[in-house]
């Protein structure tokens, strides 16, 4: 799954919904296999739109767990319209495209910070199903 998708997944355990620790899940960098597909082309409009939507703190946290500590702690301020992007803006967006869209976790583990349940990613597909006693 794309690194972007980590921004939309939380723990499936209902009791964790009252906690603030059920999102984002915690990714164990050493157990996550990352693959980059450089052929996925850059779409500045999509990047601008998705940045508006993502929870930035969660992006920074997950990306750093996956081994990249280079993201700024605050969300980059960018123009609303792709036509008004400066060269520097484009560099920022391209970097984020590489991180969020081109990079996938193909195998790995993610854990709920609240209940500690571990979910697996296999063949790039995250599995958020719970065992019967937790569902």
């Amino acid at each position: 799954m794309k690194v972007l998708t980590t921004n939309f997944l939380k723990c499936s355990v209902k009791a964790c919904d009252v906690s603030n620790d059920n999102f984002p899940l915690q990714y164990e960098g050493a157990k996550c296999q990352l693959v980059q597909n450089e052929n996925i082309e850059f779409n500045p409009e999509f990047m601008l739109n998705i940045l508006e939507r993502v929870e930035w703190d969660a992006v920074v946290r997950v990306v750093s767990e996956l081994g990249n500590a280079g993201l700024p702690t605050t969300k980059p301020e960018l123009p609303a319209d792709a036509d008004q992007l400066s060269e520097e803006d484009i560099i920022i967006l391209r970097d984020l495209h590489t991180l969020l869209i081109q990079t996938s976790i193909t195998e790995g583990e993610m854990k709920c910070r609240n209940c500690g349940h571990i979910y697996f990613i296999k063949n790039s597909i995250p599995n958020l199903l719970l065992p019967p006693h937790l569902a």
Binding site: K10, S12, K14, L129
Partner: peptide, 15 residues
């Protein structure tokens, strides 16, 4: 972008 996720309905989606 397509992202298949194995889950029981929407229990694993951020609100």
């Amino acid at each position: 972008y397509l992202e298949p996720v194995q889950s029981d309905l929407t229990t694993g989606l951020r609100d």
